[in-house]
Amino acid sequence: MCKRTWEGFVRCIMQPLVEVQNVTFGYGAVPVLEEISLHLHPGQFAAIVGPSGAGKTSLLKLLLGVLRAGQGSVRIGGRVLDGRPSSSVAYVPQIETVDWNFPVTAEQVVLMGRASRAGLWPWPSRAERRQAHALLDQLGIGEFGARHIRDLSGGQQQRVFLARALIAEPELLVLDEPTSGVDMRTAENILHLLADLNQRGMTILMTTHDLNAAAAHLPWVICLRNRVIAQGAPEAVFTPAILQRTYDGEFVVLREGGMLYVQQKPHGHAWRDVVADPVLGHVAPLESAGLMMEVQDDILARTVPV
């Protein structure tokens, strides 16, 4: 953490929390990540986007200390990760990977976040339980602590795992596709919650496949396809050229009313056939090659692919 001296403050601002330098990593002979260099400063909120197999999860695992880089180095808070995880990083896995039949309540899951720091007794201390309840309350699921995790909704489950990460008091929060497997409204709520945490100083790195949500909520995105293709603000990074290099597909990017809207062109259709109205919602049905889409001509006339 930043020391409350001028020197400490300057060092904190200058020194990145996450430093990935020229990292190359692969499973066997096939490299998954090549010459990756990244920096995340304290207080940043960033998303890694890229197609399946681009190396997003491998990069997260390198940052978590679960995998070891073949070449290059990964530092968290200035310390090189040498195959051991950093205590200043907490992780929220994809909820699809959770064993929902495991006999565990929401409160017990949250308290797992203290497993490595706990004392010798098998039960949590009063302070730990108070902290767990406070976090569940803070995340709006205070009344569900005694419930089995399977009996919660997707959004509530995601909040339980977020509370488990927060009870570990991390400096960096890493989330693997926190918006997958939940409905659109829940995904919005989760991203708002993360933005709130970031406002309070938490450094956050997540992966996502939802480019529009990333454009709407995240100030920094990293396009990854085995290499870092581009990184920066979504307005600068989400361009058809960069997205083409990242996903190997054609994209349309619309800007309207301060919003950014990304849509992949389906094969065999003109882009104007499939771009939905991002703002007005006043649309007329259009039938094109069997594809029912809604589009408004005046919007199309005003919006041009970036």
């Binding site: 679960v66 995880p85 205590s87 990083v89 896995p93 064993d99 495991f102 497993a115 720091r117």
Partner: peptide, 17 residues
């Protein structure tokens, strides 16, 4: 506590130390 976390999710337990 360590047994519980490892049994529940070994990969994530490793991340939490």
């Amino acid at each position: 506590k360590q047994l519980l976390f490892t049994t529940f999710d070994s990969d994530v337990a490793q991340v939490y130390g």
